[in-house]
Design a protein around this nucleic acid. Structure first.
Length: 192
DNA sequence: CAGTAGATGCTCT
DNA sequence: GAGCATCTACTGT
C-alpha cells in the first residue's frame, strides 16, 4: 500500500477522479485511534458550471474557498444540520472540483466503527457505512477537518485492489440541479 | 418489505 | 428565512 501524494489529487478530470477513487482506502487516525475503509461509492462535482456544485456560478464563499485551492485537501460540510459530508478536492488551484465519498467498506477498527455508528454485530460490515453521512461518522470525520491536507490525520491509500463491475448513474439528492441532475457522475461497485 | 415524517444547524438570500 | 450532496424510526402491508 502506498499513500497517495498530494500531487496525485491534481488530476484535471474530476469524473475520472471519482471513478479512480473507487477501491482506494481512506485512513483516519484521531487520538491514536485508527480506522479505515475501502471507497465503494463516489460522486463527481464538476465546478462552477455544475448546477449541483456548491460553487455553481462562481459562488466563492468562506465555505467553498477550500475548493478553489489545489487538489488533495478535505472539504467537509454539514448537511441537513446533522450529517458531515466528506469530499476530496481535486484539480489545480482555481479549478473547484471535488469528489464526494458516498460509501466505504470498513477495514480497520471495525469495533470502533460499530460503536460510533451504534450498529451491532448483526449488521454486516459492508452495510455499515453505505451513505455519505455514515462514512464520516464511521471514520470520525467532522466539519472541523475541512481544509486539512490528505496526509494526516486523514489520508488516502492505493493498493492492488481492483473493483469488479462498476455501476455508473446519476447523482443522489440533487433534483434541484435541473439540467445537470441526470449527469452520469455517480460511481459504485457491488460489495459482498 | 415500501413509504414518509421529523430531526437539526449552517450557509447564503 | 429558506433550503439543503441525509438518516432513522415508525407506519402499514
Amino acid at each position: 500500500m502506498t499513500k497517495l501524494p498530494l500531487s496525485w489529487f491534481e488530476g484535471a478530470d474530476v469524473v475520472e477522479m471519482a471513478r479512480t477513487l473507487l477501491g482506494k482506502i481512506i485512513v483516519t487516525e484521531f487520538d491514536g485511534i485508527r480506522t479505515s475503509g475501502r471507497i465503494s461509492e463516489t460522486e463527481a462535482y464538476a465546478g462552477e458550471s455544475d448546477r449541483a456544485s456548491h460553487c455553481y456560478g462562481g459562488r466563492r464563499t468562506a465555505r467553498t474557498e477550500i475548493m478553489y485551492g489545489p487538489g488533495g485537501f478535505a472539504y467537509v460540510y454539514l448537511c441537513y444540520g446533522i450529517h458531515h459530508l466528506f469530499n476530496v478536492v481535486t484539480n489545480k488551484a482555481e479549478m473547484p472540483q471535488v469528489v464526494l465519498i458516498r460509501a466505504i467498506e470498513p477495514l480497520e477498527g471495525i469495533a470502533v466503527i460499530r460503536e460510533r455508528l451504534g450498529k451491532g454485530a448483526h449488521v454486516p460490515v459492508y452495510k455499515l457505512a453505505g451513505g455519505p453521512g455514515l462514512v464520516t461518522k464511521a471514520l470520525g470525520i467532522k466539519t472541523a477537518h475541512t481544509g486539512l491536507p490528505l496526509t494526516e490525520p486523514i489520508s488516502i491509500w492505493d493498493d492492488a485492489y481492483i473493483p469488479g463491475e462498476i455501476i455508473v448513474g446519476p447523482r443522489i439528492g440533487i433534483d434541484y440541479a435541473k439540467e445537470d441532475k441526470d449527469l452520469p457522475y455517480r460511481f459504485l461497485y457491488n460489495m459482498k
